[in-house]
């Protein structure tokens, strides 16, 4: 018992790592399952980055749609990134984070387009931003924001 009290900060550090790893992995798996399922459901709704060019009379309505999401890092991912800061190389632990954010943002944009009855989104753009810029400094938590926006097109039947 005494050893635990003497090395209290070490203990908290280990607990946070284990918690970060288990909770982070669980959340990520769940998120990917949901992303894959929703991507399948919305696959018929085309998203292109090209500017659309339609014959007169084909387009009934066009509106701006956007979807944005913020995903936070967990303690374990942060530890891996900090260690990467020492040795250099690909920060693999953040790759899935950015990937999830981008796909989720696109999905949210598609969902909002679908609600308006659109059949496609043209001119799609993606942007990312960091929240909590110096996440590898002490006592700060980093998050990534991804925003996807484009023009939803409702066709005339």
């Amino acid at each position: 018992m005494e050893i635990l009290l003497q090395n209290f900060d070490l203990l908290i550090f280990l607990i946070l790592i284990v918690l970060g790893y288990s909770a982070g992995t669980w959340a990520e798996k769940r998120h990917y399952r949901s992303i894959n399922k929703r991507e399948k459901e919305l696959i018929k709704l085309a998203v292109v980055t090209a500017e659309g060019n339609f014959p007169p009379g084909r387009v009934a309505d066009s509106t701006l749609v956007s979807g944005s999401v913020v995903v936070s890092i967990d303690y374990f991912k942060r530890l891996l990134a900090i260690l990467r800061n020492i040795f250099g190389g690909r920060v693999k632990s953040y790759e899935s984070l950015v990937d999830r954010a981008r796909r989720e943002a696109i999905l949210r944009m598609k969902e909002s387009a679908k609600k308006q009855g659109a059949s496609m989104i043209i001119n799609m753009r993606l942007e990312t931003a960091t929240i909590g810029r110096s996440a590898n400094k002490k006592k700060s938590v980093g998050s990534v924001e991804a925003i996807a926006y484009g023009t939803a097109i409702v066709m005339n039947k």
């Binding site: 374990f76 891996l80 260690l83 040795f87 693999k92």
Partner: peptide, 15 residues
């Protein structure tokens, strides 16, 4: 877009 390597093996190498 996401590396396949297991995060725990990466942790082991880095530590």
């Amino acid at each position: 877009n996401v590396s396949k390597s297991h995060p725990l093996s990466e942790l082991l190498w880095l530590v």
